[in-house]
């Protein structure tokens, strides 16, 4: 568990096939697991995707979730990343008012205090990007809210164990993966 919060972070390697996200989502729904955030992306192997899940330990038993994830045939490996030293990052894009000097200056100052930067600026609105630990992102959003947020999007947390804690797989699919990255293509 993270020191300062009751959140668990779970990482899962899954086969990159259509419907796998659906299987995971269906599992959470039918077992009544609550998920704070879920991200999915490809890895450096075209047939493997990686998911990062954050759950509230008070509401969802991470161990139960992990043993149920293991039951899914397309889930290759699962780790409770937050039980060991790890790095975690969340990314947010925040759109704020930029139609007066005060808000522009306010945003610039905030971007100096936080690991954030302005990635788009126009006469009416600006977009700031922050990539940091979840709690830092939240702190940033709280501050930006004082200027006036009009739109916000977050990726959800991704995480990786530190040092020699490597989550990877040797697995090569039995049926060659098609160019579009799927063995079991849905037409």
């Amino acid at each position: 568990m993270d020191q300062q919060s009751s959140k668990h972070t779970i990482a899962a390697l899954v086969e990159n096939k259509p419907g796998v996200l659906n299987r995971v989502a269906s599992l959470f729904r039918r077992r009544n697991f609550n998920v704070d955030s879920l991200t999915v992306g490809r890895t450096y192997k075209s047939h493997i995707s990686r998911m990062t899940l954050v759950v509230d330990a008070k509401r969802t038993d991470a161990r139960k979730m992990i043993s149920n994830l293991f039951k899914l045939i397309n889930v290759i490996d699962v780790k409770l990343v937050s039980s060991e030293p790890h790095v975690s990052r969340d990314l947010a894009l925040v759109k704020v008012r930029s139609d007066d000097a005060d808000s522009r200056n306010g945003l610039t100052l905030l971007c100096e205090r936080f690991p954030a930067r302005i990635v788009d600026i126009g006469p009416h609105y600006a977009i700031a990007e922050i990539t940091a630990q979840e709690d830092v992102v939240e702190g940033f959003i709280e501050e930006v809210a004082k200027i006036g947020i009009v739109e916000l999007v977050r990726t959800g947390v991704v995480a990786m164990g530190r040092g020699t804690r490597i989550l990877d797989t040797e697995y090569e699919p039995a049926i060659p993966v098609a160019a579009n990255g799927s063995a079991h293509q849905v037409y």
Binding site: G19, N22, R23, S26, R30, I73, A174, I175, S182, A183, H184, Q185, V186, Y187
Partner: peptide
């Protein structure tokens, strides 16, 4: 049938049929 099968498949091509 996703939640009521141990696993299921929609076969995408004849090449994967036998293996599936």
């Amino acid at each position: 049938t996703l939640p009521i099968t141990k696993h299921n498949y929609l076969v995408g091509s004849i090449e994967e049929l036998a293996y599936t």
